[in-house]
């Protein structure tokens, strides 16, 4: 295992991990305010589909913007049903996941996609209309830093979205734990009745975090297809939304720990294939391939145990609708 090998594994780890990191940053805010956004997977798929199409029509920057706006709309939908109508967050979340996955397959289907692309940009050449893959984000290696052993390939030889995500994580941690806005968000998730009595607008906070979570989920999808794997297939997210949900629990709702959680899951994904080639579990690689899903299932099941939730200090009002009158 040379230094080069480690660097190459870690470079892959970061480029996969950012999918999880982006998804978890918004979701942590939502869960800290008491909203469980199970629609993450669907919003991610929708973000991937829309950014795939808009990138071809208008380029990368617009694609992230459009995905973000669409994510905000999906977040509003979630907020409307869970905050205003106080419906069961699990059911609404799953419904949004199915809606998002279905819609993503629909709009990115070759014939629909061609129609949309023609409408968005009539001057596109036919190769662009036919292409089943998105142009990838250009890599922007940072001079000097990229040559540092291990840290260079891991952190400083990627596309700009990776850098932005890595800077966002500590920023969002600071906002959540060191500012009064963050305190409000957290108190709404711990004890909405008390927060309300103190004059915090529970509904407004929860609407905002829903929108934030939607935007970040959609941008995670956009990064998935523009930054990591540019070929479109239906179901491109492959359960990554649910894995994100479980890594949030692993990182105990902290944006900083989420960086490590994301890199852990990214690392497992990368190592699956590296390990096969080193003879690790080569006779039954399916067990290694199962790892990320197994960890997701275990953490999600643990969350349903009351004492475990207390120990990892889960937001007390997570997934509970708030009634002002009671």
């Amino acid at each position: 295992m040379s230094l080069e090998w480690v660097g190459s594994v870690l470079a892959g780890t970061t480029s996969v991990g950012v999918v999880y990191l982006l998804g978890s940053l918004g979701e942590i805010y939502a869960e800290r305010s008491g909203i469980l956004n199970l629609g993450l997977e669907g919003i991610m798929a929708l973000g991937a589909a829309t950014s795939f199409i808009t990138t071809i029509a208008w380029g990368h920057a617009v694609a992230f913007f459009v995905a973000g706006v669409l994510g905000i709309l999906m977040g509003l939908l979630l907020a409307f049903f869970t905050v205003s109508l106080r419906l069961n967050q699990i059911a609404v979340g799953l419904a949004i996941t199915m809606l998002g996955s279905g819609l993503s397959g629909f709009i990115a289907f070759p014939t629909t996609r061609k129609t949309i692309l023609r409408a968005l940009n009539p001057e596109l050449p036919s190769t662009a209309l036919e292409a089943q893959s998105a142009p990838m984000l250009p890599s922007a290696p940072l001079p000097f830093l990229k040559d540092v052993p291990i840290a260079g390939p891991m952190l400083f030889n990627h596309n700009p979205v990776v850098y932005v995500s890595l800077i966002l994580a500590p920023t969002m941690w600071f906002l959540l734990f060191r500012t009064s806005v963050g305190l409000k968000i957290r108190s709404v998730g711990e004890n909405p009745g008390m927060a309300d009595a103190l004059g915090i607008n529970v509904f407004r906070i929860r609407y905002l975090t829903c929108m934030l979570s939607g935007a970040f989920s959609a941008m995670a999808g956009a990064y998935l297809i523009l930054g990591f794997q540019p070929f479109w297939i239906e179901g491109i997210t492959g359960g990554r939304g649910f894995i994100t949900l479980s890594l949030i629990i692993l990182s105990a709702w902290s944006p900083l720990r989420a960086v490590f959680g994301s890199l852990l899951f990214g690392g497992i994904e990368v190592l699956q294939y590296r390990l096969q080639l080193f003879g690790f579990g080569a006779a039954s690689p399916q067990f290694v391939l199962m790892l990320p899903y197994a960890i997701a299932v275990i953490t999600l099941s643990l969350l349903s145990i009351e004492s475990f939730r207390k120990r990892i200090s889960a937001p007390a009002a997570l997934a509970k609708p708030y009634y002002r009158e009671e």
């Binding site: 049903f81 109508l85 419906l87 059911a91 609404v92 799953l94 419904a95 949004i96 199915m98 809606l99 996955s101 279905g102 819609l103 397959g105 629909f106 289907f109 239906e234």
Partner: peptide
């Protein structure tokens, strides 16, 4: 037209969130 998977996906969504 819309594919079966998309169809199922969306109909399920509609079913679960009857209210939704």
């Amino acid at each position: 037209k819309i594919s079966r998977r998309e169809f199922l996906g969306v109909t399920k969504a509609v079913a679960i969130g009857g209210i939704v």
